[in-house]
């Protein structure tokens, strides 16, 4: 028996992280073939995941944080160098 739309909705998200294989993959494909709503849902859940991903790429670090960490890098590098010398 083919999975229900609710099951397909869950599998659409699972498929993003680990593509379905074997009989589960085949049943999903067959369901998608006959169900326009699930085809659309699968595309939209992929797109929703990509939208969240695009948020991270636009994050700019806080200037003060960057300055603090750079200062720490310089300081630790100097100490490390002193040890080596």
């Amino acid at each position: 028996m083919l999975p229900s739309c609710r099951e397909i909705a869950e599998q659409a998200s699972e498929n993003i992280d680990k593509p379905l294989t074997g009989i589960r993959w085949l049943k999903m494909k067959l369901h998608l073939f006959i169900c326009v709503n699930c085809r659309r849902y699968k595309e939209q859940i992929n797109l929703s995941s990509k939208v969240v991903k695009s948020f991270e790429q636009s994050e700019e670090p806080n200037k003060q944080l960057q300055a603090n960490i750079t200062a720490c890098y310089e300081e630790l590098h100097c100490k490390h160098k002193e040890k080596q010398d």
Binding site: S4, C5, R6, E7, N37, C38, R40, Y41, E43, Q44, L47, K50, V51, V52, K53, S54, F55
Partner: peptide, 29 residues
């Protein structure tokens, strides 16, 4: 019966950039 009774609509835009061209949507998400 676990099948759709109220499925999602057809979206205008199929990339994150196209969808997020409306700045309010990003804030909303």
């Amino acid at each position: 019966n676990s099948h759709w009774s109220n499925p999602s609509s057809q979206w205008h835009g199929d990339t994150p950039e196209a969808l997020l061209s409306a700045e309010e949507l990003k804030d909303c998400i």
